[in-house]
Design a protein around this nucleic acid. Structure first.
Length: 272
DNA sequence: AGCGGAACCTGTCGGC
DNA sequence: TGCCGACAGGTTCCGC
């Protein structure tokens, strides 16, 4: 479900109501979501103050008092929802955090791929430590990217999904970024020119920034923490548009499969 | 090391 | 209507 813009939208929502709240208690309705011993998790977070929430790549990190963090990943269908404490428990609620006011924080997840983990040290976390550049990192230049992708045979679209290269892009924005850059998704990453990589970096920042402005894209069931929708789905140019006309050249948008995942492109505007 | 495919789990949608 | 396969915004594991 969520890529960087959706994750950041959730974080902004969480930061508007959670900081300075204390976790009074918690309830785990699906044990597989929590990494490690569930009881240990519940005891570790109990009575901690939520100091702030931020992200690395698509990981959501809650900073708790006493140098503890909850590292969360939404994977395909996870979401955080803030609701009145006494609202009814719903089918896909997996973990509930009861706060010291009238609210509860719910981790809801249809498919149960999402994860929550309590850690004291972030840098040794298995997923976090292998993340690549943040999209807006000043160190991320066309030359650095070319160095990383040198001698790699994977398609550029596949490379954009590799979180150890750039952290935060997923399947929707990979297609959108390459369309904006005018680059075919099938080109091997290793043969891209400096100029092409520069276009990709530029388009990536532009597309992700626009998506952030619109609070992400709600194409199936992504919702903000108050369950309102993002609006960026209304501005997608190629994702899910197969059969429709390209906004630039009117030729048909095409869907192809790369590494078992859909890619959308305009064969006219995105040349090899 | 790098690559592609299967697996993880549940729900929805389209076709027959 | 009912069943069945395909597909879903992610990551990890496994085998080559």
């Amino acid at each position: 479900m969520p890529e960087l813009p959706e994750v950041q939208t959730i974080i902004d929502g969480l930061n508007s109501c959670l900081p300075d709240r204390r976790v009074v208690s918690s309830r785990i309705l699906r044990e597989s979501i929590v990494q490690g011993e569930p009881l240990r998790f519940r005891k570790a977070i109990r009575n901690r103050i939520i100091e702030g929430i931020h992200r690395r790549g698509k990981y959501i990190i809650f900073d708790l008092s006493g140098d503890l963090h909850i590292v969360a990943h939404l994977r395909m269908s996870g979401k955080f929802i803030v609701q009145p404490k006494h609202s009814r428990i719903r089918q896909h609620d997996r973990v509930i955090f009861y706060l010291d006011n009238h609210l509860k924080l719910i981790f809801s997840d249809v498919r149960c791929f999402g994860t929550l983990e309590a850690v004291t040290v972030l840098d040794t976390h298995r997923g976090l430590k292998q993340l690549g550049f943040d999209p807006w990192d000043r160190q991320l230049t066309a030359d650095r990217l070319r160095l990383m992708l040198r001698r790699r045979s994977i398609a550029v679209k596949t490379a954009l999904l590799d979180q150890s290269v750039i952290a935060g892009i997923g399947n929707i924005y990979a297609s959108e970024i390459l369309f904006a850059a005018g680059i075919a998704p099938t080109i091997p990453a290793g043969v891209l020119t400096r100029k092409q990589l520069s276009a990709i970096i530029h388009s990536m920042r532009y597309v992700l920034s626009q998506a952030l402005i619109y609070n992400g894209a709600s194409i199936s069931d992504f919702r903000r923490i108050d369950e309102k929708q993002g609006m960026f789905q209304n501005f997608l140019k190629v994702y899910g548009k197969d059969g429709k006309q390209c906004i630039h050249c009117s030729s048909g948008i095409v869907k192809i499969i790369q590494n078992q995942r859909s890619t959308f492109l305009c064969p006219q505007c995105q040349h090899q």
